[in-house]
């Protein structure tokens, strides 16, 4: 159990009353709406039905007066959550830590070979959501996921699915670079070794070199492959972790604020890398930096207090957000 994970629900809980009171003044008018709003009907379990109901608004949106800054009023994600070319589909996702709910009813698709960014104020559940995609939440005690997550039509939470296989297909890069206390070579070779991907030493060498090249780290480390990975700089460590993740040729790579611990130059390198990787991989990236989301992603999803508020092409989110909350966030009114 990581400490960050367990504290998140607490943060959510702590934050909400403060936000509510500040937003309350803005929303006197929305009060009746609030009272009438049912807590997302249990009947809408069928994802198809929910998707069909959803209006696909393509035209430039206008702020509707029914939108409010009180997240409790928020019921339906605005924007384009769904894709015809979906790699992963998520329907009615609710995540609980013990009694506390961290994610409320999230519906979204991730398209093939796209880079989707998830933004939102800290504690909004974006990292939690990301971790449900390769079931890393399984490692957190008391964490429960409801809803349906499919990759290529296969239910990720089906009882007979093996998480080992899933995680080999959905790789992950973490907030803080976490190279194993082994050599650079061993770090990259770890995945292929445990999965038995290389039959010979030559194969393994090839996988390691290719992965390091793809992570544009090869030139920097080829002379010292057998020195400890922890001796690299922060940015190099993070690229090593990316190399480690792609060494098993995953289909999707999840990145949880991969640059938050890095300096601007290292960050620029990683962002460059993400762009290159997007040719071969589907990438979901959580970031606290709106600029980064704007730079690297094709679509952007905005989370707020565990709810998915808006999903739209990145350009649109940062120029013409559909939802007041999104606008408030990107204009820096909170976050």
């Amino acid at each position: 159990m990581s400490p960050t994970d367990t504290t998140k629900p607490a943060k959510v809980a702590k934050k909400s009353p403060a936000l509510k009171t500040s937003a309350a003044a803005l929303n006197k008018a929305a009060a009746p709406n609030k009272a009438a709003a049912p807590k997302k009907t249990a009947a809408s379990k069928k994802p198809k039905a929910a998707a069909a109901k959803k209006p696909r608004v393509m035209a430039a949106p206008k702020m509707s007066s029914s939108q409010s800054l009180d997240v409790d009023d928020h019921k339906v994600t605005v924007g384009k959550s769904f894709s015809d070319n979906a790699k992963m589909t998520m329907r009615n996702i609710n995540v609980f830590y013990g009694d506390k709910q961290a994610i409320y009813d999230v519906n979204i698709d991730i398209a093939k070979n796209e880079v989707i960014a998830m933004i939102g104020p800290s504690g909004c559940g974006k990292s939690t959501f990301l971790r449900t995609l390769n079931r890393m939440n399984d490692t957190v005690e008391g964490c429960r996921v409801e809803g349906e997550i499919c990759m290529d039509g296969e239910d990720l939470y089906a009882p007979k699915l093996d998480v080992v296989e899933l995680r080999a297909r959905v790789g992950m890069v973490f907030q803080k670079p976490n190279p194993f206390p082994k050599s650079i070579y061993e770090n990259v070779a770890y995945g292929p070794k445990i999965h038995g991907l290389a039959d010979t030493r030559v194969d393994l060498d090839e996988i390691v070199e290719n992965s390091l090249r793809k992570a544009s780290l090869w030139e920097e480390v080829k002379e010292r492959l057998h020195q400890p990975g922890t001796g690299l700089s922060g940015g190099q460590q993070q690229r090593l972790c990316i190399a480690r993740a792609i060494a098993v040729s995953p289909e999707v790579i999840l990145m949880d604020e991969p640059c938050s611990a890095l300096d601007p130059i290292a960050t620029a390198k990683i962002e460059e890398l993400i762009e290159e990787l997007s040719q071969n991989f589907t990438i979901a990236i959580v970031t606290h930096s709106m600029q980064q989301a704007a730079r690297v992603s094709h679509r952007t999803a905005y989370f707020h207090l565990g709810k998915l508020i808006e999903v739209n092409p990145t350009e649109q989110v940062f120029t013409m957000p559909e939802h007041q909350l999104t606008e408030a966030y990107i204009t820096g009114r909170f976050g």
Binding site: M1, S2, P3, N134, M136, T139, V163, V164, E165, L166, R167, A168, R169, G171, M172, F174, K176, N178, P179, F180, P181, Y190, G191, I194, H195, C241, R244, A245, V248, L254
Partner: peptide, 12 residues
């Protein structure tokens, strides 16, 4: 924990 996460996320 990040060490464990790193390894588990690789499918170990």
């Amino acid at each position: 924990q990040s060490m464990r996460d790193g390894s588990l996320a690789m499918g170990a």
